[in-house]
Design a protein around this nucleic acid. Sequence first.
DNA 1: ATAAAATTTTAGGTATGCCTAAAAAATTTA
DNA 2: TAAATTTTTTAGGCATACCTAAAATTTTAT
Lengths: 230, 230
Amino acid sequence: MGAMKRVIEDYLKTIYDLYTTEGRVTTTALAQRLKITPASVTGMLKKLARMNLVQYERYQGVRLTPAGEQIALEVIRHHRLIELFLAQALNVPWDQVHEEAEKWEHVLSEEMEDRIDRWLGSPKTDPHGSPIPDKNGKIEEPPKVRLSEVGPSSQAVVAEVSDHDPELLRYLGKLNIYPQTRLIILEIEPFDQSMHVQVGEQTHVLSALVTRCIWVTGVESINRSNDAIS
Amino acid sequence: MGAMKRVIEDYLKTIYDLYTTEGRVTTTALAQRLKITPASVTGMLKKLARMNLVQYERYQGVRLTPAGEQIALEVIRHHRLIELFLAQALNVPWDQVHEEAEKWEHVLSEEMEDRIDRWLGSPKTDPHGSPIPDKNGKIEEPPKVRLSEVGPSSQAVVAEVSDHDPELLRYLGKLNIYPQTRLIILEIEPFDQSMHVQVGEQTHVLSALVTRCIWVTGVESINRSNDAIS
DNA sequence: ATAAAATTTTAGGTATGCCTAAAAAATTTA
DNA sequence: TAAATTTTTTAGGCATACCTAAAATTTTAT
């Protein structure tokens, strides 16, 4: 039982991701993410439960067991190390590294994982700012909020950016918005929540669709009457 | 028809290899290489024939069609580029690159293939001296002979070394025998064909098992009475 | 040339991961 | 709270790549 390594790893990784972002992992959500039918998901969850990788009760959703979580974190570590390696070693643009890492993550040996980690100097985050779990599966999730939650007249630093849509990443790249970039939130249109944001010397207007995909830390409001805004 | 990319590519690659080294590709030989039963091979060959990747007639062995050969050469190109990239970018010892490349070769995108090729400067051979097919599937096989075929009192240059056995590669590494290494064949024991070979300043005795795994070019006999051998 | 041996194929079967359609359970709405 | 809706599961199937055992064919030996 358990021949198709790739499939199992994709289930566990996706369950981990849904659990940490949504809180609850439903059959339908998994089916959508994995692009298969809910019926197939139910069948597979039973198998994963028999392998002690997930805790599953009918109609109650799934959770990872410690064994399942360990595998999920290993795959995520692979994924993020590969993303950063592709970006740094081969100069692959940040909007392309995700798709490739989706495939490489399942075939990377421990030995190569270690070598890549050493080559990169044991990095803490990938090109999108996502934290890289360490060898023991420990992952540091620093507190962060969506840019869409930040009020006007404040500043913040980009922590992480959604990595699934290459189009979004190319757009942000054009705007010079990357992890670590300092943003100044000038004002917010009440009508559609679009946000006037200053990046370096330039000002951009970001739609709510975009600000929801950007996570920031170190939010501070700018109270003093500002000298050179107008 | 044709879901399991990895399996198909492994068949085609193995057929290509057996065809170029043995001349004829039998069901049993394929079964041994792929570590499955001959019955399974027969079944798969029928499928590959229906996909127009091989030419197959019962009891007559297989050959690749042009379409099959193209895929085989693409996989081989992936494999050898990856081997060299691992060796050069990550310092992976030459006895370990093969195993990793066996897995990576099936998940490498064209885009990354190109990037790796450019990073390496469009190399002609992999770490074991095997020629790397170009983008169009053209592969240059320079004439070469097994070291075991070379007579005594001659010199030659290592062209290629069998890459399947890590143990052998570690042994050759210890002896400083790599592609491009100049060898001087001093004498050959008539009893077991073991060969006295000079590498740089050192002399080693290589068993026939080893000399059959080393391919050389530029064989020249050394006729003049030599000054400093004894 | 025929018998013996080896190779290859056929026949029938398994596990896997997916599917559709229908039934069961949970959730939402009125 | 009951009815309507949505979600989830069950039941039954399909293709894939593999297997074993037996039959067919080819090759080798005498």
